[in-house]
């Protein structure tokens, strides 16, 4: 009896979690122009609209480009830092951890306004570089956390063995450690990419019309009017999210297998 209630409650909550997404995606394939069911028919016209518009396609490219660049910067900085944090101890570790994790805790509106005022005078507002830097800062903690987690499965004795064989610390890291934690690093990069792909508030404050990203374009579209083209954009973002989720799941499973083997 109690078990049945638990099942009912759990499944209902799961449905609540999925319902909005399940509701919006089919609408984007509607042949009509209303935002409710039943659909008058299926068509790809809103996706066509998406790809032929002056705004959506550049926004898609901006999102992918800025996300990729931010992920590269965040991963390049975050991976060695995670390794260093793993090796470090004491006050250094806790202070550095505090700073590295801060972007996860500080409300993003504060970051957005602070960056607007800091980037304005040095000409980084309304540039791709400015947005990449901001998104890299927001994504870096995810890289650090993910890589640190995969280092848990790495045996530091191997590093000492490498040192005994005459490898310097850097060489040991690149030759011995990095190959083993590679899935974790890749997962961190995906997290950083997803962070950038999601981010809208900083983009609203510091980007110009040439840096419009998909979420930002959606946000202004929602303020203006919800069209089915917006639903199509949402459909595209959902598809991206599913891909990213699958990628991370695969990478993490691989990482676990490696750590296990």
């Amino acid at each position: 009896m109690g078990r049945a209630i638990l099942w009912a409650a759990g499944v209902l909550v799961a449905i609540f979690l999925l319902a909005p997404i399940v509701a919006i995606v089919p609408l984007s394939f509607s042949a009509g122009s209303f935002l409710f069911y039943p659909l008058p028919g299926l068509s790809l016209r809103w996706y066509q609209d998406f790809f032929s518009s002056d705004f959506w396609l550049p926004a898609l490219w901006n999102s992918l480009g800025i996300g990729a660049a931010a992920a590269v910067v965040a991963t390049a900085l975050g991976t060695p830092a995670a390794f260093g944090l793993w090796r470090a101890g004491g006050a250094l570790r806790s202070v550095a951890m505090g700073i590295v994790l801060a972007p996860m805790v500080v409300p993003v509106i504060v970051v957005a306004v602070a960056l607007l005022l800091a980037f304005g005078p040095i000409g980084l507002v309304a540039t791709h570089a400015g947005l990449v830097i901001a998104h890299a800062a927001l994504g870096a903690p995810f890289v650090v956390v993910t890589v640190l987690a995969s280092l848990e499965g790495f045996d530091p004795v191997q590093l000492r063995a490498a040192a005994a064989c005459g490898a310097g610390p850097l060489r040991a890291f690149f030759r011995v450690c990095l190959p083993q934690i590679a899935p974790g690093v890749a997962a961190g990069a995906v997290f950083a990419f997803a962070t950038s792909l999601d981010e809208v508030v900083v983009a609203l404050f510091i980007s110009g019309p040439a840096q419009r990203t998909l979420p930002r374009q959606m946000f202004s579209g929602l303020n203006d009017q919800i069209s089915l083209t917006t639903a199509a954009a949402a459909g595209m973002l959902v598809a991206f999210s599913v891909l990213l989720l699958l990628a991370v799941t695969w990478l993490q499973a691989r990482g676990r297998r490696r750590a296990g083997g």
Binding site: I122, G123, L124, A126, A129, I133, P209, A210, S220, D224
Partner: peptide
Amino acid sequence: LPAAAQAQGRDLTVVSWG
């Protein structure tokens, strides 16, 4: 970065009421 950002000219931006 900042120098490059400033050097790259910006297109004419027109703002209206949507």
